[in-house]
Amino acid sequence: MLDTVFIGLSIGSILLLVALGLSIVYGSMGVINMAHGELVMMGAYTTVIAQTYLGFNLFAAIPLAFIVCAGLGLLIERLVIRRLYNRLFDTLLATWGVAILLQQAIRLEFGLSFFGIHIEGLGPGLQSVTLPEIMTESFTVGEFVIQPYRTFIILVSALLAVLTWFLMYRTRIGQQVRAIMRNPDMAAACGIDVKKVNALTFAYGAGLAGVAGVMMSGFKTVMPDMGSSLVVDGFLVVVVGGVGSLVGSIVASGILGQLNGVVAFFSNDIIARAVVFAAVIAIIIWRPRGLFNYKGR
């Protein structure tokens, strides 16, 4: 039983990892970032590239992927998102376009494959990341098998959740972000530089996606399509948890992860997935704004 709880916790932590960045961006800027999964994918490829060319191991790739993806996020915000504020459906389409661009950029090796140049680590193929030795050797405590890598993912997502909480509730910029979440016009009237804060928020969300990508690369296949299914899972968490609520995201990912793990244990993963979707639908009907939500906006 403990094993099942652990698997559920692990699934939940992965959901949280993906949902965290999404939730912040959606909550503070009202932008549904369809490219979030692709930013995760970029994070994973950063790990692959860093490993191949710089000899970085997985741990060293975490800050690097954060910086790369945050930079990319900043760029996307400047070029696309900024021009589409308050146009929800347009941002939806635009970020979807960005997602496709990113996918193809990796698949076509930034266009170099047209010229017959091959960059090791990019292209349409499957890539793999080697985990450090201590992350792969599982050990048992009594009946219970401890998987170091899954435990590590749980720790990282907990750490990122705490970090995000700290940034949002204990720093000046976080206060500004929360003010913008409640009412952007009023926040602007109070002298908050909404554009700048939004740009930073988006970059932070993208950076979190990058870290998620590093984590994913350790036990999922790294390939150009890997992000598209992740973004769906991320949205489930955001929708159930309530837009912009950090606590909501944590609780929702915990619930959905455990639900998935337990149902998969008693029947199988296909039914577990169906049950998760059914639960999400039920929760949205019961509480259209999610389990936890802010008033305002």
Binding site: I7, I11, R150, T221, G261, F265, D269, I270, A272, R273
Partner: peptide, 17 residues
Amino acid sequence: DEYLELGHSEWGSMVKK
């Protein structure tokens, strides 16, 4: 005799089974 959908990537439960 168990099946998982194509492209499934969360194998924790199945491997435990």
